[in-house]
């Protein structure tokens, strides 16, 4: 891979706190190496801002390995930037060339209020999980792990849905700010496993109710969520969620 350096123009959303109106600021970043990650480019810009006595840009990040789900930048109109199946932290600067202008915003959704600059509050996702995204089993209760065989294909599919990192890109990409992909991944993960079966009706109903309560929008099947999901969670899960929800509504004995 050839390495090269580039100069870039960044337009970054700055917002002091949740009550501030916020606005774009423009920055020039020089000598960015094509080997850097996108966040390392922000590190360098922040170091410069601090030296100049200015306020550095606040953004969420932690593992920088694409797995914790903390990073959340809306880059040139796309959550996590131009690469397919990728998180912001794994985006590398060889995606860009000298002279490019890059626009960076926070996730924008009513249920994800901005805390500062590019950092948003995603605690709504925790509350959705609290409403039913688990299997009720106390520590020490279980039977032997191999007591219930699970069809490999089903286990693999459950795993594919459990791969969701809860970053919220699906919500950010959706014109309705719907959280259906996130909720459907969790409902599918647990509904596909025999262990999740006893609670599946309540789970589907309660998680949807909490999702609505948090202020996420409805799903209109545009598929934007699937297109940007860093873990390639399939939109077919939304169909499964709908069927789980319908069936639960029709058959629940409550």
């Amino acid at each position: 891979m050839e390495h090269y350096n580039m100069n870039l123009t960044l337009k970054v959303w700055r917002q002091k706190n949740k009550d501030d109106r916020g606005q774009f600021e423009t920055y020039q970043v020089k000598n960015v190496s094509s080997e850097m990650s996108f966040l390392e480019m922000f590190d360098i810009l922040n170091e410069e801002l601090i030296r100049e006595g200015k306020d550095p840009i606040t953004f969420d990040h932690d593992c920088r390995e694409g797995i914790c789900g903390a990073c959340s930048m809306y880059i040139d109109g796309r959550p996590h930037g131009p690469w397919h199946a990728n998180t912001t932290c794994q985006l590398h600067m060889r995606a860009y060339k000298d002279g490019d202008t890059i626009v960076v915003e926070p996730w924008r959704a009513k249920a994800f209020p901005v805390i500062k600059d590019l950092m948003v509050d995603r605690s709504a996702f925790d509350r959705i999980i609290q409403s039913g995204g688990y299997i009720s089993v106390n520590t020490g209760n279980p039977v032997d792990a191999n007591a219930i065989p699970i069809e490999k294909d089903k286990a693999d599919l459950a795993f594919a849905n459990a791969a969701c990192i809860g970053c919220g890109a699906c919500v950010a990409a959706c014109k309705n700010s719907s959280a259906m992909l996130f909720v459907s991944a969790k409902v599918s993960h647990l509904a596909l496993l025999p262990q999740g079966d006893p609670e599946r009706k309540d789970r589907a109903i309660n998680m949807i109710a909490q999702m609505d309560k948090e202020g996420f929008g409805g799903c209109t099947n545009t598929g934007a969520c699937e297109a940007v999901c860093p873990k390639e969670i399939s939109i077919s899960n939304i169909a499964r969620l709908n069927s789980e929800y319908l069936r639960a509504g029709l058959t629940i004995d409550k």
Partner: peptide, 22 residues
């Protein structure tokens, strides 16, 4: 060994063989 039992009961999708076992 108890940890694996606990995790499977919680729905942790460990890799499985075609026979359905871990």
């Amino acid at each position: 060994a108890n940890i694996i039992d606990q995790c499977v009961a919680q729905g942790v999708p460990f890799a499985r063989e075609y026979g359905g076992l871990l």
